[in-house]
Design a protein around this nucleic acid. Sequence first.
DNA 1: AATGAATGAGTCTTCATTCAT
DNA 2: TATGAATGAAGACTCATTCAT
Lengths: 233, 233, 233, 233
Amino acid sequence: MAGEKNKEKLILDSAIALFTSKGFQATRMEDVAKKAGISKGLSYFYFKNKEDLFMALTKKAFDQLKDEFRDEWSNRSRGKSGLAMLSDLIIRISNFAKTNQILYDSVINFLDLMKKYNSEKERESINALILESVHFQKLLEIHHEPAKLGILMVSHGIKDGSIRPELQPEITFYTIWSMMIGFEKMRGPIEYEAKEVKINPENWEPGFIKLMQEMLKGTIQASKPTTVQTSLF
Amino acid sequence: MAGEKNKEKLILDSAIALFTSKGFQATRMEDVAKKAGISKGLSYFYFKNKEDLFMALTKKAFDQLKDEFRDEWSNRSRGKSGLAMLSDLIIRISNFAKTNQILYDSVINFLDLMKKYNSEKERESINALILESVHFQKLLEIHHEPAKLGILMVSHGIKDGSIRPELQPEITFYTIWSMMIGFEKMRGPIEYEAKEVKINPENWEPGFIKLMQEMLKGTIQASKPTTVQTSLF
Amino acid sequence: MAGEKNKEKLILDSAIALFTSKGFQATRMEDVAKKAGISKGLSYFYFKNKEDLFMALTKKAFDQLKDEFRDEWSNRSRGKSGLAMLSDLIIRISNFAKTNQILYDSVINFLDLMKKYNSEKERESINALILESVHFQKLLEIHHEPAKLGILMVSHGIKDGSIRPELQPEITFYTIWSMMIGFEKMRGPIEYEAKEVKINPENWEPGFIKLMQEMLKGTIQASKPTTVQTSLF
Amino acid sequence: MAGEKNKEKLILDSAIALFTSKGFQATRMEDVAKKAGISKGLSYFYFKNKEDLFMALTKKAFDQLKDEFRDEWSNRSRGKSGLAMLSDLIIRISNFAKTNQILYDSVINFLDLMKKYNSEKERESINALILESVHFQKLLEIHHEPAKLGILMVSHGIKDGSIRPELQPEITFYTIWSMMIGFEKMRGPIEYEAKEVKINPENWEPGFIKLMQEMLKGTIQASKPTTVQTSLF
DNA sequence: AATGAATGAGTCTTCATTCAT
DNA sequence: TATGAATGAAGACTCATTCAT
């Protein structure tokens, strides 16, 4: 699997594959190096330590996540409504989570980290190696960028009438964002409970999106339904 | 911290305290025992291993969570609407998460576990000690009980007119449940981003609940506002 | 498996079964007690510790072994020759080893113990609990009793002319005894090597006995062959 | 005790010394490392686990044992008879056992292992770590090599007339091999019993060898006595 | 840049044994 | 006699990290 250059990317890709299949704890630095086709020692040349590597991975996750937001946001120029963008964003995130499991997980992990980081008492319980990581520092700066784009979408939706005008953009977006995160978390148990209740991951998604739309939609929207489920591909 | 009897509870309480402040990984069984005022060996007498202890803790978490759902559900006899129950449920869960951090976290962790458990490939990546735990086995049976009550609340809301009649109870409840979970996850980052955006955990909650209500409410409800925010305390 | 009395025997039998299937180290005192149908604590009332229990078992082994020797020795009254007795003794011991595996093993283990016990330097490497065991003390007194009977058989054989008169009884018996012990030790590898060499546990035994007879037999014996292989049953 | 290179040998030698004086069970890996002048971790770098280390030691034992057989076997070119070789082999093995106690013990232990390994039911009672050891795998291939040479010696003895022609080489050799093993096992008890019976390790050996010779010798041999007892040194 | 031998702190877990009842 | 909760010493093993080359 070795290449000639950009060892850093090689290591990162190896880590993504391994963390995905075995988890962060269960993955040994040696295996990451081996899969990357380099020596253990060299991994430490590129990444200060295991935590640093994970933070680099998290940084990459946020970058990719932001790309998803940006790509969706760019659709406004083609006349897509704010509500439609948010609806499709859900599908994008859902696909992102499925396709890049560990990256998505690292984003969620970062949210937990932020919770501790923002609590006086808990902050000290964070592994020092994480706090020292340059990638963590960078994340502190950029981790809200995706959300910023999401807020713009809501604002845009209010302007174009697809979203009720009385809604506050920040609160609204973060509520939608919460829904998405919870949606992903519930995939597992839903599948299990499906045996007993009338729900499964497949029929839940459209219902979920419809509910979100009901939550947001303005008067105009009512007579001009979006083509949400199909607009992405 | 030692008591006279019910060592099992003593150990569990000790674990809750330690796991909360230091995390599962960083907590040593020896410390759990010490804090419980007993010997290390006795901990292993009551709990097969560290994972088993964590699963016992998770079981306790689901039991307490179910109590919250049940307590709220019992309010129907006093004429509380389905929508009002769901609104207050959000506050209950939010408080539960704040008051019993590790218990709440263990619930979320269990959701992740279920995701793997339901995936052919990923199932084998689950620590065998977890699968062997009797408490895990029990959890497989009972983990959907809280949700069942939640679904009843939605159904109840549809009957009493507080929730739109066209909504499907299962899908609706799980969507709300997702919102709650995501809401808790976002607390941390929100606090951090609050510096830049017009949002913080305090003003988000009422807005969040209002959005959920908009999502659900029936026609009758519009002219008869709930007393959601104040009904719990 | 519990009885009403003779708990000591119950424990011993339980230990024999467990040590046989799992080995001494791998067998836990708790399991011995459980299988005996009594509590762990009671086991310690009857046997000071695990080593003491093993020494008691070894004592029992020597007693049974002596019985085999004595039974064979009693055949002299029926006119059986010394050589015939020794030949059949081999078969007896071989059967004893197969039927009472752990008892036989404990005898061999005791031989190793004796080796250390007789060496100034090595004696201190013996587990103190063994040396303190009353059963060990008893074994020091009685462990040569079987051999004494064996020596008598050789002497008897010299007298009856079935064994060459110039042989020294002690040396001769211990040499035969050695052969028997080695014979049992080699069973395992023989079975494995059988694939490559013309030998297996079944055809080895008669050849082995014949060789021993050649080693011992006097002139008279030559014209009056024993019925060794069949005389036992 | 540290050297400059070949850490593997360093560890092995350390293990031999420690296992000899304290036994396998009582020896801690940490002590093996310390005596070898290296860290605990490095021991695990060279040997997968304690069992693997013991199997490596056993492999070494078989190699050295084979050297003894080979050296003796090479004497045939100098006109040494088969019977004389076998007689001297006994002395060699005896010396080997005295000089390399733990190595010799490991050989005997391996025989016990083979017994279990060849028994359907008992095989599973063997520690899995042993079965997984590459050294164990190797031993399965080579452990009968010494015996092969021994068989050659018997065959050679039959050809040169020093051993009776009617003897079957395999059966004969394994019987002698058994005698040797038993002989070593009996050393300890003999020493103890010597107080009561007319035998001790010193006067037993020549008698033992003589008996073996009687067992084997052909007619020619009778008039051409071997120089067994003195030929080795 | 690159290697991989070397380190050693860190922890879970087992189980013989005790002792209050 | 009999129980079984309670103890705690003991030890194997892992793996992130370093550093001489």
